Computed example of a mutant assay.
Amino acid sequence: MITLQGQVLNIFKSDDYKNARTGEVTVGRSRVQILGENHLENGDVQMQIFELSLPEKFQSEMNEYVGHVVKFGIGVGATQNGKTYLTISQKARIEFIK
Rank of each mutant, 00 (worst) to 15 (best):
I94N: 02
N10T: 10
S89M: 11
A20H: 04
N42A: 10
M47G: 01
I94T: 03
K13E: 12
I94K: 04
N81K: 15
R29E: 12
K83E: 13
I74M: 12
Q7A: 02
F50K: 11
D16K: 06
L4Q: 03
Y85L: 05
S60Q: 14
I97E: 12
D16S: 10
H39R: 15
T22Y: 00
N42C: 09
Y85S: 09
I34V: 14
E51Y: 02
G77T: 01
S30R: 12
D16A: 05
K71D: 00
I49K: 15
H39I: 14
T84D: 03
T87Q: 13
S60D: 15
T87G: 13
Q59N: 11
H68D: 10
L52E: 03
Q59V: 12
T26A: 11
Y85A: 06
I94W: 06
V32P: 01
Q90T: 07
P55C: 05
G43A: 12
T22L: 07
I88L: 11
A20T: 06
F96S: 02
I74A: 03
H68Y: 08
N19C: 09
S60N: 14
L86V: 11
A92Q: 08
S89I: 00
A78R: 13
T22Q: 09
N42K: 11
G28E: 10
F58P: 00
I94C: 05
H68F: 08
T79V: 02
L52C: 12
V45F: 01
E64Y: 08
H39Y: 13
T84I: 09
Y17M: 08
Q48R: 14
Q33V: 15
I88E: 01
L4D: 02
N19P: 04
I49Q: 15
V27D: 11
E95P: 01
H68Q: 12
Y65Q: 10
I74W: 02
G36P: 00
E56S: 13
S60Y: 05
T84Y: 12
T87E: 14
Q33F: 03
G36Y: 00
N19T: 03
E61Y: 11
R31E: 10
L40T: 07
Q33M: 13
T26L: 08
G75M: 10
N10Q: 12
Y17A: 03
L9Q: 14
V32I: 15
Y85T: 08
V66H: 05
Q7S: 01
L4M: 13
T84N: 13
G67M: 07
A20Y: 04
L86G: 01
E64L: 14
G67W: 02
M1G: 13
G28F: 10
D15T: 09
D44G: 00
R29K: 15
L54S: 03
E37A: 15
L54I: 04
T26Y: 08
S30A: 07
I97S: 05
